[in-house]
Design a protein around this nucleic acid. Structure first.
Lengths: 109, 109
DNA sequence: TGCTTTAATCGCTTCAGGGTCATATAGTGT
DNA sequence: ACACTATATGACCCTGAAGCGATTAAAGCA
């Protein structure tokens, strides 16, 4: 019987969750999912953040294989390529909503 | 049309991922999933970690609603109560394996 | 009322990583 | 070659959190 979480993978799985555990990075992937491929400048403007900051986060995301970089001229276009991302986020969102409503029920008691 | 990741939830979703983004915490939930409910002392022994450390992580996990605490005598028994946990971990594991094999293919080319 | 056991908390140190500014690098056009 | 633009990187500061030892708190028992 397979373990729920193989011990050799623990650190890797944690690392993946850590990549997603930052609001700025989530806002980047959210933007890419909503509006499709964007270059760094566009993301900087849309998210109202520092250029260096966005670049760094994009590096983290691309190193993790969440996004892919497509250079074009002096620009770099990024898009989400991780097919599991939507599922992960949607599971977490659903769970969070469940917890909120469960808490509301407890409060009512 | 709903956004992939509602902006009001960004920080909450990130926080949830952050809770799972630690190898020690993952080893705790992994143990609880494999062996069922355990008290703090048992976890300390199984994971060969400091008691204060485990207690702190359990607090984080229980605050996030991932595990539940059941006091009994001077002990405290914890178990996983988040139904989404398995799905999350299994998605990440699968994705990681995909990436590894994809990398292996690229290397072969 | 102590005494023991178990867990939670406090104080502390250390380190990873997020943010920013400044600089380097790379591509484009003149 | 030079200037201009877009992105990446380096240096730095600073906060958050992990880990540890010591202490406290709570439950059970003599």
């Amino acid at each position: 019987m397979p373990e729920a979480l193989p011990s050799e993978m623990l650190e890797h799985v944690a690392e993946r969750f850590r990549v997603l555990g930052d609001a700025t990075r989530l806002s980047i992937v959210s933007t890419l999912l909503d509006s499709g491929e964007q270059n760094v400048g566009q993301l900087v403007e849309l998210l109202d953040a520092g250029q260096a900051n966005i670049s760094k986060h994009l590096k983290v995301l691309s190193k993790a294989g969440v996004v892919t970089r497509r250079p074009e001229g002096t620009s770099a276009y990024y898009s989400v390529t991780d097919p599991s991302l939507m599922a992960l986020c949607s599971i977490v969102c659903t769970r969070l909503r469940e917890q909120v409503s469960a808490e509301a029920r407890n409060f009512a008691i």
